[in-house]
Design a protein around this nucleic acid. Sequence first.
DNA 1: TTGCATGTTCCGGA
DNA 2: GTCCGGAACATGCA
Length: 260
Amino acid sequence: MPELPDVEGFRRYFARHAAGRQVRGVRVRDAALVRNTSAQGLGRALAGQRFEQPSRTGKWLIAPAGGPRVLMHFGMTGLLSWSSGGDDEHRHDRVIFEVEGGELRYRNMRRFGGVWLAPAGTSVEKVTGPLGPDAMSLDRERLGELLAGRRGGIKAALMDQRLIAGIGNLLSDEVLWRARIHPSRPAHALSPRRIEALDRELHDVIAASNRRGRIPPQEGWLTGARDRRDGRCPRCGGPLRRGTVAGRTACWCPRCQRER
DNA sequence: TTGCATGTTCCGGA
DNA sequence: GTCCGGAACATGCA
């Protein structure tokens, strides 16, 4: 699931269940998903510390705990699961944070992503690498500036985390469909009107998705039609097209989103 | 059995 | 240096 709205949901989930609670220990079920330290290193850094309010940048969840911070990336199949009743672990629970009153489980079927530690005094960017401004806090002017400097296609630009953080395959398709922009259109060639539409739809889609903690597969949205065998555009009723753009399976309406 | 999946990274080539 | 396509990574499902 994880694009910006999903991770925003995980942030709230973390805040509700784990923030303010002291860490008792960490159980690592899959050492490979603790990416930049050992299971012992993670446990030593966190034990006795108290989780503070988490933050999110792009698709990264950042959980401070005293000095050190835990960073989580969810890949394509990651999520968080809280347990206060000692119920059975899921087979894909990879790292388990034991806190007062329960435990927060980092689950990830496909094992992309993982858990990182940013020790006190080190920068978060050292873990995440360079990230552009978060898509949620982007304004139209900045969006226009960022896109003006790109030579490639608009979909590739939107999904480039170094340019803008948080947008993935589903979000980019949804926003481009709403703004009536073909995913292959050169990013720098968008008119001010298209930039304005893109900015508006980006924020509308993110706001609506954040409320649900996911990009909803909903009537009237591209997401509600894109996975059907004969998917039709919710706006014009024409047949949707799918194809590879920027290395991903893109979906668009060839009537509403003209090539140029 | 084959292809595909909401992510990132690395490589070769234009 | 920029950008793109393709492959790799790992696992499950239609």
